[in-house]
């Protein structure tokens, strides 16, 4: 009988990512309802010392798979390692983060373990003894409640949605042999390109800070660059700004430029003509900063600030820095 709520913790460069704590805290909550233990799988090379941190958020047991073959992350290796320990222990629920890595791994595991997976969940609960996962579908135009018949019931959780709650447990560390041979892997990470500035295309960016006619000139974009750096985003521009020669053509967002759909679009000094809206209105969240209270962009914005962008943007940058620190 499958038992226990498990998570796959995520670490990068020897540090646990915040999603791991969100997973641990959520798993704890679920486990408390079913009266189960929370176990975490921690994979990597030389990462055993991280296990204790997970205990702080309610993890009872940490299965550590430590091997050079597990660093850096490669789907095959991690999927094999997780599948091995999961098959040995038969948990009822397995949670992963819906991060880039977590999504990749979760889907492979669903195949390997021949079970169901609910991706990118915004809520998970126990109903009738089973995991009920709530997740957005159709780009958030509706939500689905997902129930998986087989075990483990896998769900990946959307980052930054689930609260982190401390619940200290003396996490028991169980080392296991991931049984992964680096030489056998078909995929190899050749290079990790850290500095992606200028490499990430606007259309791929999760956050875009965009400036229009209100930027007054090319110099104005410095503050947008700073904010974009803080948010790991890109800088975009309206057609007016590109026409004026303030920004290169490749930065243009709109009907005749690029059509983007980031999670967050911050429009600074952009009035919001339809040709611009056509390029960004599918962004998940829109912030508008503009002096003109009647600018049409405010009708599309989730959050609007009617004020001088040259005063607001630097403050927003430092506020975000504080929150992300």
């Amino acid at each position: 009988m499958a038992k226990g709520v498990w998570i796959v913790a995520e670490q990068r460069d020897g540090a646990l990512r915040k999603i791991s704590f969100e997973l641990a805290s959520t798993a704890r909550k679920l486990a408390d309802q079913t009266g189960d233990e929370v176990s975490a799988i921690l994979l990597g090379s030389g990462i055993e010392s991280l296990a204790a941190q997970l205990g702080k958020y309610g993890v009872d047991k940490v299965y550590v798979g430590d091997s050079p073959a597990l660093e850096p992350y490669v789907t095959e290796a991690h999927a094999a390692a997780v599948a091995k320990i999961v098959k040995e222990n038969d948990p009822a629920i397995l949670l992963l983060g819906a991060s880039v890595q977590g999504k990749d791994l979760a889907a492979r595991l669903a195949g390997k373990l021949a079970t169901g997976l609910a991706t990118d969940c915004t809520d998970v609960k126990i109903a009738d003894g089973k995991l009920l996962a709530v997740r957005p579908m159709y780009a958030g135009k509706c939500f689905g409640e997902i129930v998986t018949g087989s075990n483990p019931q896998i769900a990946s959780l959307r980052p930054n949605v689930f609260p982190v709650a401390e619940n200290a447990k003396a996490a028991q560390v169980v080392k296991f042999d991931p049984a992964v041979d680096a030489a056998q892997l078909k995929s190899k990470v050749l290079e990790v390109q850290k500095d992606t500035s200028g490499k990430v295309d606007l259309t791929e960016a999760n956050v875009i800070v965009s400036g229009g006619r209100g930027m007054k000139g090319p110099e104005g974009y410095a503050i947008l660059e700073e904010l974009a750096d803080t948010l790991h985003g890109c800088v975009g521009a309206s057609r007016a700004a590109v026409d004026a020669g303030w920004r290169p053509q490749k930065d243009q967002v709109g009907q005749t430029g690029k059509v983007v759909s980031p999670n967050l679009y911050i429009a600074c000094g952009i009035s919001g003509a339809i040709q611009h809206l056509a390029g960004m209105s599918s962004s998940k969240y829109i912030v508008a900063i503009n002096k003109d209270a009647e600018a049409p962009i405010f009708a599309k914005a989730d959050y609007g600030v009617v004020d001088d962008l040259f005063k607001v943007v630097p403050e927003l940058n430092s506020a975000c820095k504080k929150l992300l620190a």
Partner: peptide, 12 residues
């Protein structure tokens, strides 16, 4: 494409 899918040039 916008005209094809939504019968207007902006794709609304």
């Amino acid at each position: 494409r916008n005209m094809e899918n939504n019968s207007n040039p902006w794709g609304i």
